[in-house]
Amino acid sequence: MTTAPPPRPARTPAQVYRQSLWLLTSRDLKVRYATSFLGYLWSVLDPLVMAIIYWFVFTQVVDRTIGYEPYIVFLLAGLLPWMWFNGAVGDATRAFTKDAKLVRSTRIPRTIWVNRIVLSKGIEFIAALPVIVIFAMIFGAQPTWGVLWLPVAIVLQAILTVGLGLIIAPLVVFFRDLERAVKLVLRFLFYASPIIYGLGDLPHGLDFWASFNPLAGIISLYRASFFPDQLDARAVIIAAIMSLVILAIGILVFRRMVRAVLKEV
């Protein structure tokens, strides 16, 4: 009946990569959106509730001297990217363990196990962007030409997050403690990054050191959409260099460890 294997049109490695990456990413999104009634709303609700809490504390309770008006827009411009970063780095700790069976039985390029997390969280982030637009309209924040920095911010953040994911994902397979350590560091980083405040709100001198946190430069790029003064060239350049260095380290660590990871998963 069956004759020789029908030659399947040869596909380039890039096509194979894309197909597998998209299969896993869309599955992640489907699971999150299709299985719950509120679906999409959940990815908006989370940053929204946080933003409202901080807005309430800093505008209604405490006499605030940080950030810009309207504060809720200022806050969301930092919180939404943070949710992407936090979610992707947090999930990267389980990149290999969560789908161990698939990792063990397929030969797709292994970086996909990390990149699919960054991509699916990134899509959720972009899907949540309309929230800022709505609040900007309600509170009358004017978009500026700084909005052109948005793609740069997204690319930089993707580079940074992929780099960190490539470092963390394989290491967690061997050092289980790292999973909790990462959670702790993330909590610290939330307050150490200019999310509820701006880089300029820091005491003089401290802002220099704070700009070595790549998130500082990246968030200043996001905020430039509404608050052009927030754009801090020094912080952005440092963020770009740091992100690329972290990505390079990530690729190195990942290459070194992938053999051992495949034996261990």
């Binding site: 399947r8 596909r11 194979v16 197909q19 597998s20 299969l23 896993l24 599955r27 698939l102 397929t106 797709i108």
Partner: peptide, 17 residues
């Protein structure tokens, strides 16, 4: 995942369009 979803996922990851 269901049988159907697994079929699509696994066959896809093994390179079947």
């Amino acid at each position: 995942l269901t049988v159907r979803e697994n079929l699509y996922l696994t066959a896809g990851l093994h390179g079947m369009p």
